[in-house]
Design a protein around this nucleic acid. Structure first.
Length: 135
DNA sequence: TACCGCTCGTAAT
DNA sequence: ATTACGAGCGGTA
């Protein structure tokens, strides 16, 4: 996971989390990485964002592991524009758990964590491969 | 206002 | 069959 840039928003930083919850979250992530990439994360999420961003993130959570959607397809589904979807993906405060890596461009892989190339993109491709998607 | 993790049409190699 | 480019897009800072 090194290289993933977490850009926590105020809500994430300031919230007090008890040790047991942290343990549960780490266990869930470990299970995803080591055992079953198709597992559902069952811990509660409290994401900070605009109403539109919550709409997009909620839709992302409905994409099964091993599948992808294009920015354009999500835009049509949400009655908005591809770029707006991309901007919301980019603002995702909780990568991996909220699977913005399952959103790709019509012509290529698209970006990840604010980058359209470089190490971040390698992470996106790794996650997709981990989930068994071969594009 | 000016950015953009996009997309589509059109046109030139 | 590719590439390149322009215009339009909707949300956000």
């Amino acid at each position: 996971m090194t290289g993933l840039s977490w850009r926590p928003q105020a809500d994430c930083r300031e919230r007090a989390v008890d040790t047991a919850s942290v343990h549960r979250i780490l266990q869930g992530l470990r299970y995803y990485f080591e055992t079953d990439p198709a597992c559902r994360f069952d811990f509660p999420l409290r994401l900070t964002g605009t109403p539109f961003q919550h709409r997009v993130w909620g839709t992302l959570l409905g994409i099964p592991a091993g599948q992808v959607r294009t920015y354009g397809a999500l835009a049509a589904q949400l009655r908005t524009s591809p770029r707006a979807v991309a901007a919301a993906c980019r603002a995702n405060p909780c990568p991996v758990v909220v699977p913005c890596h399952r959103v790709v461009a019509a012509t290529g892989p698209g970006g990840y964590c604010g980058a359209t190339r470089g190490p971040h993109l390698k992470i996106k491709k790794w996650l997709l491969a981990h989930e068994g998607w071969h594009g």
